[in-house]
Amino acid sequence: MTVLNPSHLMSRTRDALPLLLNLPAVILLLAFIAYPIGISFWMSLHRYNLRRPDQVYFHGLDNYATILASSEFWNALWISLYFTFMAVLLVIVIAMAIALLLHESFRGRGVVRALLLIPWAIPGVVNGLMWVGLLGDYGAFNAMLADSVAVVNYLFGLDIVYTGMASPFVALNAAIGAHVWRSVPFACIIFLAAIQAIPTEQYRAARVDGATSWNRFRFITLPWLYHAVLVVAIFETMNGFRAFDLIYALTGGGPGDATHVIAWQTYKEAFARLDFGGANAYSYLITVITMTLAVIYIRLLYRRGLVQG
């Protein structure tokens, strides 16, 4: 009697089952992310303006050339870079501060922990509307800002005129502040989990070795959080570059072009100018920039041997 070797059968089906299980997800993502991305690239090589639907033709990299030569693009890119850089930095600092607080044990910690999720639960566009109110003419924060400018003027004998959201500087940084506020909880959750994973013996050992509390943070907490900081940096970089709904609701890109972040610029290109070719070239550039940044971060993760395949 010949006995079928079952392991032989298994090895063929072994790869089939996991692939089958991944199939629904892969199909969805291929259909609604990979395919559109491909189309997006193809369209970016065309002249394609909805205002002239009869004049759709291939013209290679012309859209890219136009964009790279336009001051609008460079303005949007710099604003987005500034926006993203500040957002990543502030989110990491504030989220870390709150995570360290939540790691301490004190009465009422549960309350703080519950309140932590409030900003996260608020939809981006509602967040924008909310900050419109806060920073608008009658807004509570607007009054506070105006008062503090007055105090600064008085103390230092300066003559700063506070114009609220009409000032490009205020508008851009207010947008960053609102964006950061909403992004802090997610980052904080990640930091908190990472802090709680640090073995307490490490702190005891450092205490025995005579490390001050700053040194314990510097030489134990921070190295242990390296992975978490990178993860947050990846997420927040992506979020920074795609910030749209907040801008839409809070500033509408203004005043002037002060808050024309690149996602907003793309949206305008597509649906205000109806230039689909140009807008796709824009969106392709954003994708390339975020992907490049993501690859850099992921390489950093790999180099530290912190990502397992």
């Binding site: 993502l29 609604f32 992310i33 990979a34 395919y35 559109p36 991305i37 189309i39 997006s40 369209m43 992506m238 570059f241 795609r242 749209f244 996602a263 793309t266 949206y267 597509a270 689909f276 807008a279 796709n280 969106s283 392709y284 954003i286 994708t287 975020t290 992907m291 993501a294 992921i298």
Partner: peptide, 14 residues
């Protein structure tokens, strides 16, 4: 991971 890093505005038109 790559899919996650594609910004929404990049695929909105297609």
């Amino acid at each position: 991971l790559g899919s996650r890093s594609v910004p929404g505005v990049a695929i909105m038109i297609p």
